[in-house]
């Protein structure tokens, strides 16, 4: 622990050493005008170069990303597959079309690339035109009876055989 007078002396020594540094630095400092003159040219060159490198890297990344997205968008949709019953034979085939009845048809061929995606877009079903493949099972001989209102004196004939 320093005595107060020792403390003051050491602070004075430190201050004096710093002042010698200050004098030497003042002698070697460039002038204000020189400092201002040197700057703009130097600064912008380095900045431009760094910006160019960053821009080239960004372009490469964007091109790679666009290519990756294109490849993913060109993939074909899952083709229609026949449903297989417990016995192993196909029972029905789901076909998405433009209002035609169900019950048959083969999955259409898948064109490559962009044509594939257009064909796939066309094959997308319209919910309003979809018909159930098992619709026939819901028809019965008594459909006429169920859909009409009987009147007094009028007899509804029910066919005995399935049409």
């Amino acid at each position: 622990m320093l005595r107060p007078d020792e403390h003051e002396r050491s602070e004075a020594d430190i201050r004096s050493l710093y002042q010698t540094l200050r004098q030497a630095d003042a002698e070697r400092a460039p002038s204000f005008a020189q400092s201002l003159r040197a700057l703009p040219h130097r600064n912008r060159l380095g900045y431009l170069r760094a910006v160019t490198v960053a821009a080239v890297a960004a372009v490469i990344l964007v091109v790679a990303g666009v290519n990756a997205l294109r490849q993913r968008g060109g993939e074909s949709p899952v083709p229609a597959r026949p449903l297989v019953t417990a016995g192993g034979s196909p029972a029905a085939t789901l076909v998405f079309g433009t209002g035609e009845s169900s019950g048959g048809g083969t999955p259409h061929a898948q064109p490559a690339g962009r044509r594939r995606s257009k064909a796939a877009a066309k094959a997308v079903p319209s919910i309003s035109t979809w018909k159930s493949p098992t619709e026939a099972l819901l028809k019965s001989p008594a459909d006429g009876l169920m859909t009409s209102v009987p009147s007094i004196g009028y007899t509804v004939s029910v066919p005995t055989t399935t049409q």
Binding site: T20, A24, E27, R28, P30, A38, R49
Partner: peptide, 26 residues
């Protein structure tokens, strides 16, 4: 990634005009 700039320094090693060796060493 950036160009060297030390060559463009206005005055990199300007020395004081006169100084004693002892002062400079100190």
């Amino acid at each position: 990634l950036l160009p060297q700039e030390s060559a463009d320094a206005v005055a990199s090693e300007r020395k004081p005009a006169e100084q004693s060796l002892a002062e400079s060493e100190l």
